[in-house]
Design a protein around this nucleic acid. Structure first.
Length: 443
RNA sequence: GGGCAGGUGGCAGAGAGGCUAUGCGCGGGACUGCAGAUCCCGUUUACCCGGGUUCAAAUCCCGGCCUGCCCUCCA
């Protein structure tokens, strides 16, 4: 039985989807006004892992992750570059998915875009106005926080206390400083869609509520994103959705810790970010996966080359063990290693501990079938074993060179033997002489 | 100031009342044409501070201190 930390209940809870076998999962995706950085990758990779684990446990998962393709930053970036904002965002979204593909993050089942759901959003906002939770003000529409008494339950804030933080009376079109925009009237030259309140665009939070409703109905099983989204984004989503439907919005709230650089959050505004595509130039995707997954998802993770370097070593051990398995043979997927893996992951998805287990398995397990089976299961979840590139022919040629080198060694022609070893290393093939003979692996 | 999560060996980082974490690094050894990989041994009282509960606390309770994220840009 899986237990997972729920941000709303503030403790680990038994994972219990509404429908038993089916899991409706939604993770907030990026606002695509620039390329993806490693922080985005961490979150996307974690939710992809979560989904894989649920599937392994036999759940049927529908995983939705949105792309925000309209907001202030998108508009500003478009102006900066002299490009139509939404098409710019769409371009960056394509690049985002390309980067995630490269990191072997599986694509969600559905990746909805905000601007493809304007009718649903408008309908949602109209519903909130009808029910008295929202009001129009000079072309904008705001959610009235005081009408939703449970506001603050996710982030643990009290509206009264938050209000005390605002010393000045709000001067804009809101009735209360706590109110947030559902719909924003368009300014000159901004992208706009017609609405009952005049031309405008959706506020940031409403798209997730509207799209969740569109794909999952009033209640979904898992909703998540980075911890930086807890407030205000997710808090506001709860307010909007529960106000409209009167039903609980999400059964489990799951949030991933931030990726830090020098103990500070990696972010665009601090300019301390590393783009996925840049990191991929120096490190294989599987090593990056180890670096990001070999940490508990809720703890902040410090990003540095040291972390990648350590990940490379862990990766080497696991991949090395995989490669030294006999080329033939069935994996036994029912070993105690697999049992242990499930046990570990069942406790709040402790991927860090899962890697520790994998290291233990490759060091201790002598039965090839058991190790192969375990690594197959492990890799189905983590994708850390690189996909073999060379065809059978290439492998056969390497085997031949290894044999030629062995003949040279037998004749004590070490100059030739070392030449072959060095040349192969240049090509990324590492040779290791062991008691059982020479074996090779890719680096 | 408030909300939430944490503070564990040289470093990274699990564990959550009694039982070796693990990896890296470092020291020694085995194996070896060399290299690498692998294996064995070591790295002695690691658990922020102060109280308390208990036969027993790194783990539970209370009070501090410190760090990260958030407090309407954020994965």
């Amino acid at each position: 039985m899986l237990r997972i930390y729920d941000t709303l209940r503030k403790k680990k809870v038994e994972f219990r989807p509404r429908d038993g076998i089916k899991v409706m999962m939604y993770a907030c995706g990026p606002t695509t006004y620039d390329h993806a950085h490693m922080g985005h990758a961490r979150t996307a990779m974690f939710f992809d892992f979560f989904r894989r684990y649920l599937e392994m446990k036999g759940y049927f998962v529908v995983y939705v992750s949105n792309v925000t393709d309209i907001d202030d930053k998108v508009i500003n970036r478009g102006k900066e570059l002299g490009v139509e904002p939404v098409s710019l965002a769409r371009m960056y979204a394509k690049e985002y998915f390309r980067d995630m593909d490269a990191l072997r993050v599986r694509r969600p089942n559905i990746t909805p875009y905000a601007t493809d759901h304007i009718p649903e959003i408008i309908e949602f906002v109209e519903g909130l106005i009808e029910k008295g939770y929202a009001y129009e003000s000079d072309g904008d529409v705001y959610f009235s926080v005081e009408k939703f008494p449970e506001y603050g339950k996710l982030s643990g804030r009290r509206p009264e206390e938050m209000l005390a933080g605002y010393s000045r009376v709000s001067t804009d079109k809101k009735r209360s400083p706590l109110d947030f925009a559902l719909w924003k009237a368009a300014k000159e030259g901004e992208p706009a869609w017609p609405s009952p309140w005049g031309p405008g665009r959706p506020g940031w939070h409403i798209e997730c509520s509207a799209m969740n409703y569109r794909y999952f109905g009033p209640t979904l099983d898992v909703h998540g994103g980075g911890t930086d989204l807890i407030f205000p984004h997710h808090e506001n989503e709860i307010a909007q959705s529960e106000a409209l439907t009167g039903r609980p919005f999400a059964l489990h709230w799951v949030h991933t810790g931030m990726l830090n650089v020098n103990r500070e959050k990696m972010s665009k505004s601090l300019r301390n970010y590393f783009l996925v595509r840049e990191v991929l130039k120096g490190w294989r995707p599987e090593v990056i996966r180890v670096a990001l997954l070999n940490a508990h998802y809720r703890t902040p993770l410090e990003y540095s080359t040291d972390v990648l370097e350590e990940a490379r070593k862990v990766h080497d051990k696991i991949w090395g063990a995989w490669q030294s398995l006999p080329s033939e043979g069935e994996g036994n997927r029912e070993s105690r290693w697999v049992e242990k893996l499930v046990e570990i992951l069942n406790d709040d998805l402790n991927t860090r501990k899962a890697f520790t287990l994998a290291l233990e398995a490759v060091a201790k397990e002598t039965d090839a079938a058991a190790l192969r089976g375990f690594l197959e299961v492990f890799d189905a979840l983590f994708s850390v074993i690189p996909v073999e590139t060379g065809g059978g022919n290439e492998n056969a040629l390497i085997d031949l060179l290894v044999e030629v080198r062995d003949r040279a060694r037998k004749k004590r022609d070490y100059e030739m033997a070392d030449y072959i070893r060095d040349a192969l290393r240049e090509m990324g093939i590492l040779l290791e002489d062991t008691k059982e003979g020479t074996r090779w692996r890719r680096a």
